[in-house]
Computed example of a mutant assay.
Amino acid sequence: MPSPQQARAQASAITSGKTAPEVEAAPTSQLRELFDGPRLSPGQRRIAQYLIEHITEAAFLSITELADRVGVSQPSVTRFAGAVGFSGYPALRERLQSIALKALAGGPGEPDRANELQAAVDAELANLENLRRDFADPDRVIHVGRELSRSTPLTVLGLRIAESLAEYFGYAARRIHPDVRLVTRGGSVAYDALLQSREAGGSWVLAFAMPRHS
């Protein structure tokens, strides 16, 4: 049964002689339409099913994270993207994020759904909720913290867009750690710095990485 808003729109269209605008399909329906056409292998069907069931989270995963969640290889994810008509995983993820943001904004056909900026915030809230679940076992975080503190020197790596994060962490870490080495240049410079850190007794490298277009 149509909602009151949809009924009024349909009545107005009939009165004016125009066709009422079609309501956009639900995110799940859009994904099924996207994935049901091609002939997929069993592994590719698992990827498709995971995306359908976890679209608001899966749309923001890297190719490595998605492969780990589904239990397939990274090349399998790349082949899946090609099988459903995309040039690669980045192009597929862009389409998935468009669908996910609309789902987070309240779904199609709802009069009070959020705009794209609010939907982006909702996506970050979902990421924070996932992080909160990961912190359910604080012993894991404490263990990693102790291992980092024991590594002398402690190397902190951050290139390009991640450089500022590495610099900030390095600045704070130097207040409690005796030997923090910051690496913000790639290529042979980074290789030499990591090698020197290892030879000096360092056992850990803390690397910051961010998507290119974040």
Rank of each mutant, 00 (worst) to 15 (best):
P90Q: 09
Y168V: 15
S164M: 06
A48V: 01
L206N: 07
A20V: 10
G17E: 02
S87V: 12
R32S: 09
P178K: 05
S151G: 08
W204I: 09
A119L: 04
P42Q: 10
G109M: 01
Y50G: 01
A193E: 10
S149M: 09
S164H: 12
P4Y: 06
F86S: 03
L131G: 08
D68F: 03
A48D: 02
I142Q: 15
R69C: 04
R140N: 10
G85D: 09
V144Y: 14
T64H: 13
R181Q: 13
I55L: 15
T152A: 11
T56E: 15
V84Q: 01
L195Q: 14
L128R: 12
D112W: 09
L194V: 10
E110N: 11
L165Q: 14
I161Q: 15
D137K: 02
A100Q: 05
E22F: 00
L51E: 02
V144K: 11
F35T: 04
Q97L: 02
G82P: 00
L182E: 03
E167C: 10
G158L: 06
A126Y: 01
E167L: 12
Y50P: 00
V84Y: 00
R132N: 13
Q5T: 11
A48M: 05
I161A: 15
A105W: 00
G43M: 08
R93N: 07
E110T: 10
F35H: 03
H213V: 12
A13M: 01
V141P: 04
A11C: 06
V180E: 07
A67C: 03
R174I: 03
A83T: 08
T184K: 07
L61M: 15
F80N: 03
F80G: 02
N130C: 12
A193L: 05
W204M: 12
A83F: 01
S98K: 05
P27E: 03
G201Q: 06
L34N: 08
P108W: 00
L194G: 02
R93T: 06
Q97N: 02
R150I: 09
I63S: 07
L101T: 01
A9S: 10
L40A: 04
V156D: 04
V77H: 00
